[in-house]
Every structure is written in structure tokens, then in C-alpha cells.
């Protein structure tokens, strides 16, 4: 059994979040879930609610919350860059989960911009012991381009379609991007990952077919980030058929199962219960 508590918290009492507390849980690893894009703390299609409750049932204390100015959270006073704000918000979040569940180390979970924010904090805060990056940083590698363009080059139907379309004015219909992650220099990201695993962090990278404009194969983790992806502390999964925000319930189930199993395997703790 577990219970959920609604909190207003933070250095300016400006943050809102839901702590999930398994009965009897004290100490151990807490899991903090960051906003995905502009969606409030429940996550896309309630992903974060389902995730935190599943982890609570497995024995982990959790916090899903809204960063400054997102969801129900307000702005903190003072002039800070967005990165400084995110770092301070996560500090507030870790303090809250420490107070409510006695957690001293934390796993951060983030999708897209949430992965970017989780990455920033994971790279600098020693309390972060693990991170789950869903559709985080990605770079179009040579392998990506070959896999993407070669089949198209030798596909006669594509050529026919292209020829038929020549000269025709297209509607120019624009599709609004759902989320967008500002790229960070690849060398920096590799250096961050390397430093994370060297200090003992565990990483789980799950990338979806929803970012096929940048990522299209399991091999691309190694192509993007090099040898650090072979480190035993790093687990990767490419879910080719899935979309970016896990709109289908079956895809979501598989993602949640994967995160739970990865947590139980890497952060067993005294309270974690392995699910058969």
C-alpha cells in the first residue's frame, strides 16, 4: 500500500507536486519525475501518474512535480537563468522527498525537455544516483543518414511519387512541434555521460520511433555517444514502433515495465519489491 500527498513547497513556496509514499518506506532511493515539455506534472496521457504509482507499488518513494512557471507552479523571485532555476527546483524537490521519505539519493526521470533538465542536474548534483532519459539528446550520425536515405534512394515508388509531385505546389501545411530539445554540443554530452558513470551513476536511455527525424536504430546510441554506451552502468533501449509521448496504452505498459525492472535491478534497496 502507498499514499499520495499534495505539496506546495520550495524556497519560495512556489512549487506544486505529488509525493507518492509507500507504507513503511524510509531512506533508500527516491524517484523524481520532471515535466515533459509544457505538460503539467501528470505527464503526457497521464504517463507520470501511472509511472509513479507503479514505482510506489514496487516500494519506491516518488515525486512528480511542476518546475517553476510550469503546470501549477509559480515563478521564484530573483534573477536566474532557466538552468539555475531547474537546478534550484530539483534541489527543492530532493529536499522534500528527503523530508517525507528519508531519501538521500535520487533517480531522475525525464522525457524530451524533461530528459534535458534531468541531464543538467544529473551532471552536477552528487545526490543523483541514476537517471532515465526518454528521447534525450540525439544526433544524426552517418549511420543514421545511411539508414534513412539509402532505402529511399533505391525505392522506385518514392521516385515515382516525387516525379508526380514535381511542379505541383504543395499546401505547405505546417504541423506544430510538440516538444523541442535545444541541442547541446555532442562532446559535452559525451563528457557528461562519462563523468556520470565514473562517479557510479546508473543510466537508462530509452529512445522512441517518435524522434525518427534524429534517431533510427539501437546502434545509434553507440554512434552518438561512443564507448561510454558499452559501460555496464548504461542500459539502452530503442522502441522503434513507439511514438514520442507513448500515446498507446500497450506502449506505455512496456515502458513502465522497463523502467521498473531497471530500477529494481540497479537500485534494489530494502523496500523495493521485485515483480514476477
Amino acid at each position: 500500500m502507498s499514499r499520495e500527498e499534495a505539496h506546495r513547497f520550495g524556497r519560495a513556496d512556489h512549487l506544486v507536486g505529488i509525493a507518492g509514499l509507500p507504507d513503511g518506506a524510509s531512506g533508500g532511493t527516491g524517484v523524481i519525475v520532471l515535466n515533459a515539455g509544457l505538460v503539467h506534472r501528470v505527464g503526457p496521457f497521464r504517463l507520470h501518474v501511472e509511472l509513479t504509482r507503479r514505482l510506489n507499488a514496487t516500494g519506491y518513494a516518488t515525486l512528480r512535480f511542476d518546475l517553476s512557471t510550469l503546470g501549477d507552479s509559480g515563478a521564484a523571485p530573483g534573477r536566474h537563468t532557466r538552468t539555475q532555476q531547474v537546478e534550484a527546483d530539483l534541489d527543492d524537490a530532493m529536499r522534500l522527498l528527503g523530508e517525507r521519505a528519508g531519501c538521500e539519493r535520487f533517480v531522475l526521470v525525464g522525457l524530451c525537455s524533461g530528459a534535458q533538465n534531468a541531464h543538467t542536474v544529473a551532471a552536477s548534483d552528487p545526490r543523483v544516483a541514476g537517471a532515465v532519459f526518454l528521447d534525450g539528446y540525439a544526433y544524426r550520425t552517418l549511420g543514421y543518414k545511411l539508414r534513412h536515405y539509402l532505402p529511399r534512394l533505391f525505392d522506385p515508388t518514392r521516385w515515382m511519387r516525387r516525379l508526380r509531385r514535381r511542379g505541383r505546389v504543395t499546401g505547405g501545411e505546417s504541423v506544430e512541434p510538440v516538444f523541442a530539445v535545444a541541442p547541446a554540443p555532442r562532446d559535452e554530452v559525451i563528457a557528461d555521460f562519462t563523468a556520470m558513470v565514473e562517479r557510479g551513476m546508473k543510466l537508462y536511455l530509452v529512445y522512441s520511433g517518435g524522434i525518427s527525424t534524429h534517431f533510427n536504430h539501437q546502434r545509434q546510441f553507440r554512434e552518438c555517444f561512443g564507448r561510454v554506451m558499452d559501460h555496464p552502468s548504461v542500459t539502452t533501449r530503442f522502441a522503434a514502433d513507439t511514438d514520442h509521448t507513448y500515446i498507446l496504452t500497450g506502449d506505455r505498459e512496456r515502458l513502465l515495465d522497463g523502467i521498473r525492472d531497471w530500477l529494481v535491478g540497479n537500485f534494489p534497496g530494502k523496500d523495493a519489491r521485485r515483480i514476477a
Partner: peptide, 11 residues
């Protein structure tokens, strides 16, 4: 927003 003017809770 005034601090404390918006209160989250369960009921």
C-alpha cells in the same frame, strides 16, 4: 500569485 493563495490538497 500570492504565496499560499493556491492550495493543493486531496479530499
Amino acid at each position: 500569485m500570492r504565496a499560499g493563495s493556491e492550495s493543493p490538497f486531496f479530499f
